[in-house]
Structures are given as structure tokens and as C-alpha cells.
């Protein structure tokens, strides 16, 4: 078993004091493995974003410890946290949060100024990400001219530019239509399973469950592993995403075998050349 990238122990965060104290996160313990996708779900106000903020070093826990890549960030000085955030963590936000005055390429390179090699050394990495995420034609575009899906892909590239250990994503599909949301989920799935990044997702979107290796339920600040017996998982032969055979309606039969898909797009690809995916 590899060493967890994030080790959170007895995390508690409370706001206010005395009679008005609110415990947003209550004694949460959590390990996140390399390449693992964890989905944190729960009702509104359950503490999901507070938990994500603490894991990202944006918020100090009231109690407990968080180790990221073996560095205990809870004991670090406030002034040391920005470096941890810049180099060990990549953030993806629901509202994309791109910098409006900068182009796609400049947005992606922005966090690289904190990397040892600086922006110049990061240019090659940025080019690779721009090509991987299909942004090569939009390299010099400003965020206001991008579609929602493009914005989120830029945000993903920005999160990856410093090659962090963990990606923290807050409702990454929240502002996207279903098709684009699906694409973004596929990208997150690939960066975790193919490139080894750990991904922690906070989402209300049940479709995100499809790519999660582990689903955690947070309610009233307490965390539980969600029961998953009601699922019967199989892999989408095109993108490799996990698909629940019992609930998905996108399926086909080929050579007397049933195949299940995460989206119509994958089904179309499969139908175009089934042999490629059934070898």
C-alpha cells in the first residue's frame, strides 16, 4: 500500500464561540492515496467546502492535523502555506475563477511563477497541457471569449501546471451542461488514473459518482463511507470510466456481450469502431 498523499487526522473546524458555536467539520479522519479519486458529497451546509478548504491549506482547523506529502500543514506558519498551496495542491473551482485580464496561456502559467523553474521552464509543460486538453486554438484567447467547458479545461490545466500531488475540485461540473460536465469528469478521471494525481471532488452532481473510487458522505460535519452495494460497476470500454450497470441507459451489445457507457459520445465512438475497444 503506497503512502497516502493526504493524511487528515481528527479534523475539526468550528466557527463562533459559546452558545453560537457552529461545528462545520467534526472529528474527520481521512487518507487519500495517490491516483485515487474521492468524491465528498452531502447536503448544503454540511461542511464539504470547509473540509476542502482545510485540506487545501486555505483554512486552519480548530483541531486535528493534515499532512500533505508528509508535511504537516497545521503546524506551519501562515506565511509558509502559500508555497504549499502553489506546489502541492491544484485547485479547481465551480466558477472556474480564471483571471479575466490574462489569456488562456497566461492563466495556465500563472501559478508557475512559484515553481522552482519559474514561468520559462513551465512553458513546455503548459504546451503539453494545452494540447492534451484541446486548447491549442484558444491559447491567446481571453476567458470572456471561452465556453464554460473551455474555461474549466483551462482551470484544470492551471491546477496541473506545477505538477501538484493533489487536485481539489469544488463542484467542477456545477456550472456546465451535462455533455461538458461529462467531458470534464473524463479529464479528471484520466489525470487520476493515468497520471497518478489524487483528486478530491466536492459535488452534488450524482454523475460524478461514476468516476469516483471512493464516495464519502458528509453530514453535520461528520464523514461516512457511503454504502455502494446498490451499484454494479463495470468499465466504459471507450474512456475507462466506471459505470453503474443497474442505472445506466447507455449500453449496447456486441458479439453477444453487453457494454455500458458513461455517455452517448463514448457509445458513438464505440459504434464507429467496436473492434478497437474489444480487443
Amino acid at each position: 500500500m503506497p503512502e497516502p498523499v493526504i493524511k487528515a487526522r481528527n479534523l475539526t473546524k468550528s466557527f463562533g464561540s459559546g452558545h453560537t458555536v457552529v461545528v462545520a467539520v467534526d472529528n474527520v479522519t481521512l487518507d487519500i492515496q495517490p491516483g485515487e479519486i474521492i468524491l465528498v458529497m452531502g447536503p448544503s451546509g454540511s461542511g464539504k467546502t470547509t473540509l476542502l478548504s482545510m485540506l487545501g491549506g486555505l483554512l486552519k482547523p480548530t483541531q486535528g492535523t493534515i499532512e500533505i506529502d508528509n508535511a504537516d500543514i497545521t503546524t506551519l506558519k501562515e506565511s509558509a502555506l502559500p508555497e504549499i498551496r502553489a506546489l502541492k495542491i491544484g485547485f479547481i473551482f465551480q466558477a472556474f475563477n480564471l483571471l479575466d485580464a490574462l489569456t488562456v496561456q497566461e492563466n495556465i502559467l500563472f501559478p508557475a511563477q512559484l515553481h522552482a523553474g519559474g514561468i520559462n521552464e513551465a512553458r513546455d509543460r503548459a504546451d503539453v497541457l494545452i494540447n492534451q486538453l484541446g486548447l491549442h486554438k484558444r491559447r491567446n484567447a481571453l476567458p470572456q471569449t471561452l465556453s464554460g467547458g473551455e474555461k474549466q479545461r483551462v482551470a484544470i490545466a492551471r491546477a496541473l501546471i506545477n505538477e501538484p500531488k493533489v487536485i481539489l475540485a469544488d463542484e467542477p461540473t456545477g456550472n456546465l451542461d451535462s455533455q461538458t460536465g461529462q467531458e470534464v469528469m473524463m479529464i479528471l478521471h484520466d489525470i487520476a488514473h493515468e497520471q497518478g494525481y489524487s483528486v478530491v471532488l466536492v459535488s452534488h452532481d450524482p454523475r460524478v459518482e461514476d468516476i469516483a473510487d471512493r464516495i464519502l458522505w458528509l453530514e453535520d460535519g461528520k464523514l461516512d463511507d457511503r454504502q455502494q452495494e446498490r451499484h454494479k460497476w463495470s468499465r466504459d470500454p471507450v474512456c475507462g470510466m466506471r459505470v453503474d450497470e443497474r442505472t445506466t441507459t447507455i449500453k449496447t451489445e456486441y458479439h453477444n456481450k453487453q457494454y455500458f457507457f458513461c455517455s452517448d459520445k463514448c457509445l458513438q465512438r464505440f459504434n464507429a469502431d467496436p473492434g478497437q475497444y474489444t480487443k
Binding site: 486555505l58 506565511s79 502559500p82 502553489a86 495542491i89 475563477n97 479575466d100 501559478p111
Partner: peptide
């Protein structure tokens, strides 16, 4: 302030 909060979150120091 939205962008400043973002760049702080991205790791740019005060």
C-alpha cells in the same frame, strides 16, 4: 477581490 482571493488560493503570498 474575487481575483485576489483566487491568486491567494493559488499560492501567491501577501
Amino acid at each position: 477581490r474575487r481575483e485576489i482571493a483566487i491568486i491567494k488560493a493559488l499560492g501567491i503570498g501577501n
